[in-house]
Amino acid sequence: MTITILRSHNKQEEAYPLEDKERTLLKALTDIKATQDASLTFSAGCRASVCGTCAVRVNGKEQLACAYKVQDQDVIEPLQYHEVLRDLKVNKSLTKKTLQRSTAWLQTFQEASLTPKDEKFSEKQSDCILCDACYSACPVYAVNPDFLGPFALTRAYRYSSDKREADTKTLVDNVQSNGVWDCILCAECTLACPKGIDPKTDILMLRSLSIEQGYTDPTFVQQSFGFDPNAGF
């Protein structure tokens, strides 16, 4: 079989022949590096879908290289909307800033007893491995590079829904600008997530919390077509 990898030094797709046997894309990449081309650069760590470093795009779809079985004619590219550092290795430090801007952490701790049901409630959201697959799949970034994005908003929701969080309001306040209302609910993030997390639904939940806190959908206001509720007064 042959796979094609987008290289950064010449911005060309380079084809690599591989022996016809079943292997993960990550194994294919390490084999190519060890035997064909030592300059091929990619990020990898645990091989077990938990460190989140090896996400790439295969035929236009986000995949963890360690969890994807490579196929003949596959085209491998780096994640979208990231600065390419070299070949398949991208700069994730900027995308991590979305976590800082959305303050996706426990704001104010309060003592609370958690039942197994409570734990289950945010179990999926806390499975996130920060692989950036959802970020790469999100079409909002094509028009708004400042969007907080799926993984940061899922994480903000994870904390806002935790009984030990005493200050949900601050979290909700911090996801308004370039946040929950900028999502177009296309669910590409949900399809891309290798952990089965559903950021789209989490964003909808954050919208509900926002409305509870007195926020309104700014796009809805813009769509009022000149209707003046004060009737000119």
Binding site: Q100, T103, W105, L106, C128, I129, Y159
Partner: peptide, 14 residues
């Protein structure tokens, strides 16, 4: 381990 690591990471960002 993953959950401990990410809670620590979030705390570091904070």
């Amino acid at each position: 381990g993953l959950k401990i690591l990410h809670t620590l990471y979030d705390s570091c960002l904070k």
